[in-house]
Simulated scan of single mutants.
Amino acid sequence: METGRRAVPRAREQRTWGRSWSRASLTWVSVLVMPLSSERGTGALMGAGDVIAQQLVERRGLRGHQGRRTVKMMAIGFCFVGPVLGSWYKVLDRLIPGATKAVAVKKMVLDQGGFAPCFLGCFLAIAGAMNGLSVQENWSKIQQDYVDALLTNYCIWPPVQIANFYFVPLNHRLAVVQCVAIVWNCYLSWKANRM
């Protein structure tokens, strides 16, 4: 009996320690990912994606690096991608509340079936306009790149978004997307700036 009584407090201690450790971990995770959950973080990661595209994909080297292009991608992240994605996740959470697997799949279908095609088209149009393309040139570039970019999107984002909608709280979803999007931003930068 003595052993049974001692085991209960230890179990409670372990459960309490586990909860406090989880809270502490979530607090540190929040501090680390909070900058990525904002427009500033999105702009910085869009810029990082462009740097990776120029240096690793296009192999421009430091002398051939186009700084203005990086600044343009950062501006698109600050002014368009961050605010639009952040708002979209809030709207999506209101449209389809909950956190079950079925809800995550529904959110992913709406996100990838409705939002992603429109968002991608707008992104390509904005990038083209910022690159100084005329309306006709921009339209031709969108027609050339859109289907390929959308198919590539569907190879990457559906599994990421299901996990994001199922496991990640609303206030950290943009951060998760932006962490994965470093590779995606690299691809988008390459695609948007390929003439």
Rank of each mutant, 00 (worst) to 15 (best):
E2M: 13
E2R: 14
R6A: 13
A7M: 14
P9R: 08
P9E: 06
R10S: 09
A11R: 13
R12N: 03
R12Y: 06
R12V: 11
E13I: 09
T16G: 09
W17P: 07
R19E: 14
W21I: 09
S22N: 15
S25G: 15
L26Q: 15
W28E: 12
V31K: 14
L36I: 03
E39Y: 04
G43R: 01
A44N: 06
A44G: 10
M46T: 05
G49Y: 08
D50M: 06
V51I: 12
I52V: 12
I52P: 01
Q55V: 01
Q55E: 05
V57K: 09
V57A: 14
E58I: 09
R63L: 12
R68V: 11
V71I: 11
K72H: 12
M74H: 00
M74Q: 01
M74E: 00
I76Q: 01
I76Y: 02
F78Y: 11
V84G: 05
S87D: 07
S87V: 09
K90Q: 13
D93R: 08
P97C: 08
K101A: 12
A102K: 12
A104C: 08
A104Y: 02
V105Q: 04
K106I: 03
K107P: 02
K107C: 04
K107M: 05
L110A: 11
L110F: 08
F115D: 02
F119V: 08
C122I: 10
F123H: 13
A125L: 05
M130Y: 08
M130Q: 04
N131A: 13
Q136A: 14
E137N: 07
W139Y: 12
K141D: 13
I142C: 05
Q144F: 11
D145P: 00
V147Q: 06
D148H: 15
L150M: 14
L151I: 08
T152Y: 06
N153A: 11
N153R: 05
Y154S: 06
W157I: 03
W157D: 02
W157G: 03
A163C: 14
A163I: 08
A163Y: 01
N164F: 00
F165T: 03
F165Q: 01
F167G: 02
V168A: 03
P169A: 02
N171I: 12
R173C: 00
L174D: 04
L174M: 10
V180E: 03
W184H: 07
W184K: 07
N185T: 00
N185V: 00
C186S: 12
L188R: 03
S189K: 04
W190S: 06
W190A: 06
A192D: 04
A192L: 04
N193S: 10
N193M: 08
R194I: 12
R194M: 15
R194S: 15
